[in-house]
Amino acid sequence: MDPMEVFKIEVTGQEEFGAKKYRELIMDILQDLGLIRSIGRLYVYVDILKPYFAVYGLLRSGIPPLTVKDVGDVLRVAGGYQIKINDEEHMANLLRVLWERYGRERVEQPARDIVIIASDTSPSELMVADLEAEFLQDLTDALVRVAPEGFRNRRNIMTKDSFFFIAAEESLTPDMESEIKGKIREMENA
């Protein structure tokens, strides 16, 4: 079963095998990069005679930025705040953010998963990582991997809740772009 609500792929000509294989390929790559759960709908249109490759996708609700309270428990202690780290994956980012905000001399790490800050301001709301930006970066990487390799003229339009990616061998023209948008719209309404 597809984890996406809609996943349509259309290839011109007698290329049923290509369409089937590209479906598997896209799933494999999105799964490898851990993106599949963030994409709600996906439409892929390939015209192999022109040739071009287009992907239009709708994203699931935005991912909030990761804050200090998401990676550990913040407690008020004598002389400052203590953070008990639960998720070590973002440790390097967390320390960098704390050093920038409080200065190295006020951040102490007595144990591997404990950080103590000598300050009266709580670090709870400090942003550790911008997950949305990382996601969009990974998504662009996935689209470049998915597109056939020779299609090196690319355009990627990303908005808050959707993305539209075209790759072609020849230069991209406004006509081509509007033609592809029309085809994708047809797929959406079908």
């Binding site: 290329e15 290509g18 294989k21 590209y22 390929l25 192999i48 040739p51 056939p148």
Partner: peptide, 8 residues
């Protein structure tokens, strides 16, 4: 080693 589209 080629790909998945017979035209190509």
């Amino acid at each position: 080693i080629f790909g998945n589209f017979q035209e190509c």
